[in-house]
Amino acid sequence: MEFKPKILGFLCNWCSYAGADLAGVSRIQYPPSLRVIRVMCSGRVEPIFVIRALENGLDGVIVMGCHLGDCHYIDGNYEAVNKFKMLQKLLNPIGLGDRIRLEWVSASEGVRFGQVITEFTEHIKSLGPSPLREKEANQQLLEELEAIARVVEDFRLRALVARKRKITEEGNVYEKIIPEENYEELLEDAMNAEVIRSKIYLNLQIGPLSVKELSKRLNLDSASVLKHIVTLRQQGKVALDRIEGLTPYYIAIKV
């Protein structure tokens, strides 16, 4: 059967949505792959929206806003960039990073709107249908995605991303400006750690496990698993279930 890509687009009301309307008024023809959710600003798009869309089997997700510097809300789209970058970094390791896209289309760029959708549709076609159209066959991927979903809803990365412009431009609480590349490093470390913790948590939600069992499941050395367990216990997310012989078993605390 012919692959008909289905793409979800988040369009900001002021530029991209207007650009999409203009494409219509100008009778620009583009593939019928796009389904649009209108938001007021591209900065409104929460990473979890994109993740839930992918989880549901959408073949691609595109976030569209005003060109940088032209945001109706002054600089909302800069936040969209920061959120998108984080999201792509989280999705790249599980092979879904290429299915999301961030584009700027102004209210006067009807032609460009058509081009962007056509091009992205072709790109998605070249990737083929999302593996998550077949959920049963891709449980592993679903679990990985769920781990990421928890991370983007959690305090740490949300705070880090929302504070990016402040700490790279104005300075942190100690009035120290962190250079962009150091920030990226910081974010990367935080992302890696949070994804692992999220996976540990999800595994411990199913039932109690020892560090050894966890390290086998996650393909990680025991030392780092233990380190994360300690953090998760401090955060009140994981508790000691029992000790068998000399081996402690941990379990997730349901919130």
């Binding site: 007021m40 600003c41 900065g43 409104r44 798009v45 929460e46 809300y73 959120k83």
Partner: peptide, 8 residues
Amino acid sequence: CGLCGASC
């Protein structure tokens, strides 16, 4: 605009 909600 929703920026605060998406970032909180």
